[in-house]
């Protein structure tokens, strides 16, 4: 039994969908993958440079991770504010979205966008519209993983 209201497709409709699938312009898989590689790689390289900078000032690689993240989020926020980061993602796709700068973009963009709807219900509420799912499931997954590890090993 399908979902309520789900439509039974006739043979004609199914044939049509098959035809449309063939006629539809394909996504440029290779080009997208290559640009994602370089855009993502370059962003990570910048991150590595920032981390190296902190390590030059006496931090260990582990200690430098957190300030590096903050700097990268700042860079993402600034580029978003200037209206450039959407162009990075338009070309680089996941190469722009997957790095933490993309996470920053996902929080800053709605905050800017919903300013006309007010500081509380606009900016305040919409800040997490895109980043919310990532936080929710990241926290949930980390809890489950930590719990399982704790139950098995006794130290998470």
């Amino acid at each position: 039994m399908g979902k309520e209201g789900a439509r039974q497709l006739t043979q004609e409709m199914q044939d049509y969908q098959t035809m449309a699938n063939q006629m539809r312009p394909k996504k440029p898989l290779l080009k997208n993958a290559v640009t994602a590689f370089f855009v993502g790689g370059i962003i990570c390289e910048v991150g590595q440079g920032v981390q190296w900078f902190f390590m030059q000032h006496g931090m260990t690689a582990k200690e430098a991770t957190s300030p590096t993240t903050v700097v990268m989020i700042g860079v993402g926020a600034l580029l978003t504010g200037l209206g450039w980061y959407d162009r990075v993602v338009k070309r680089g796709g996941m190469g722009g979205s997957l790095p933490i700068t993309g996470f920053s973009n996902a929080m800053v963009a709605p905050a800017m966008e919903y300013r006309p709807e007010g500081l509380i219900l606009g900016v305040g509420a919409k800040l997490f519209t895109v980043a919310g799912p990532v936080l929710t499931y990241g926290l949930a997954a980390a809890f489950v993983v930590g719990l399982v590890r704790y139950l098995i090993t006794g130290v998470a």
Binding site: S66, P67, T69, V70, I73, G74, A77, L78, T80, G81, L82, G83, I100, F103, S104, M107, V108, A109, P110, A111, M112, E113, Y114, R115, L119, V123, L127, A131, L135, G138, L139, A142, F143, G146
Partner: peptide, 25 residues
């Protein structure tokens, strides 16, 4: 979890607020 990620999340919230006040889409 949140303790470790606090820096990043808080930075993103603050930068988001700041950008909303400074920049226009």
């Amino acid at each position: 979890g949140l303790t470790a990620a606090a820096g990043g999340i808080k930075a993103a919230v603050l930068f988001g607020l700041a950008a909303a006040l400074i920049f226009k889409p």
